[in-house]
Design a protein around this nucleic acid. Structure first.
Lengths: 204, 204
DNA sequence: TTGCGGTTTAACCATATGGTTAAACTATTT
DNA sequence: AAATAGTTTAACCATATGGTTAAACCGCAA
């Protein structure tokens, strides 16, 4: 029977390489090397590059959408739910810092394929951010905001720091300011602050 | 003499292909095709792939840094200067929507090379955002904020919408909301709003 | 017209790359 | 021990890819 998690090792290696170099840039040999096997075995488990890529990409995509769609805890006030949403995004992005970049890049290269995949994905049915925002706006709990634009702003504030961390570290190094990786906490707090100010609410 | 802007056509084509696929993913043949020449001529103008890539990347990098560093108009109030900065970023990013992604990706693949390039770049000496923020904070014109984190937040709000536009269009299409490309104006306004609320200032 | 320098091309070359094949190995069953 | 089925490997193969070469082309000065 299938030995010692070879398939998992392959998927792990493939994830790393594809996320770094994309579908075109990735080399099957690199993946095989990272997984400590040879190319033939790679093709034994995943018939070809596209199949392997699909496995990686599908996994990433569903994980990403799952994270980005859920907006739970209907009972709490809207700002609390948003703070929790922010916590969730930072946790997710800390674990998979390259994933948003990966998905964005591959989609921009091949939008058609992506539309198919999303269309065939099971649609999340639970509570989502935009309807919740609209409801709160109707109840005059928060100022008038285009909910879609707000969602985009929110994602910007959460996602970009992870995307840009390599560039930002350098910009910072050039000036004489310091930058530490633990600053995620600080950034997360600043995002909540931004949201609090914007929604005229308090933190906590 | 060098004919009919061949070199420019090559650089333009190379920019497109490298920005889309990165150094590894890009194919010299694709670049040659896009420039309507053959590979040999490509190598005649730029000895090899790395040289061509460098030309493209250096151009992108200096343009990017130039845009992101300048923070002019010392006489105006700080929030006005930031609004102008936002205008500048949106203008720049509209013209080169793929550039931030390109730079970020290549840097994350090869950080060492990047450090070299930045180190050898001429350092911009004019007024910059962070000192201006600190000065305004000292004068109690704006609330206490970590200026570096604020800069990051600001860049997040401006840059991410361009990065994520392919993914965001799809997310939006999945729900039954609309999304138009002209929304840049709307988004830009929302960024200024965010900043205004955060700094306790008015718009205009 | 010829010669000259820069430009462009067709034809190559060596290697990298995705993919295949057949044999070898290994654990389990009979 | 032999048969069986899944797993792994070395050796290949065809094509793609970065890069080179030598010849052809082209405008222009002598």
């Amino acid at each position: 029977m299938k030995d010692s998690g070879t398939e998992e090792r392959i998927l792990e290696a493939a994830k790393e390489v594809f996320m770094m170099y994309g579908l075109y840039g990735a080399r099957m040999q690199d993946i095989a090397d990272k997984a400590n096997i040879n190319k033939a075995l790679l093709h034994y488990y995943f018939r070809n590059k596209e199949k392997l890529f699909d496995a990686v990409f599908d996994g990433a995509l569903s994980k990403y959408f799952e994270q980005m769609t859920i907006f739970g805890e209907t009972s709490l006030p809207i700002e609390q739910r948003i703070y929790t949403y922010i916590d969730g995004m930072f946790e997710f992005l800390s674990e998979y810092p390259q994933m948003s970049m990966f998905i964005i890049k591959e989609i921009s290269i091949n939008p058609e394929l992506f539309h198919q995949k999303v269309a065939s994905m099971k649609i999340y049915k639970g509570p989502t951010l935009i309807p919740a925002l609209m409801e709160s706006m109707n109840k005059k709990e928060i100022p008038e905001i285009d909910p879609l634009v707000f969602l985009l702003n929110l994602h910007s504030l959460c996602t970009y720091p992870f995307l840009a961390s390599p560039i930002f570290k350098t910009i910072v190094a050039k000036s004489k300011l310091e930058w530490k990786d633990e600053n995620h906490l600080k950034i997360k707090h600043s995002v909540k602050e931004f949201v609090a100010f914007r929604l005229q609410k308090t933190l906590n």
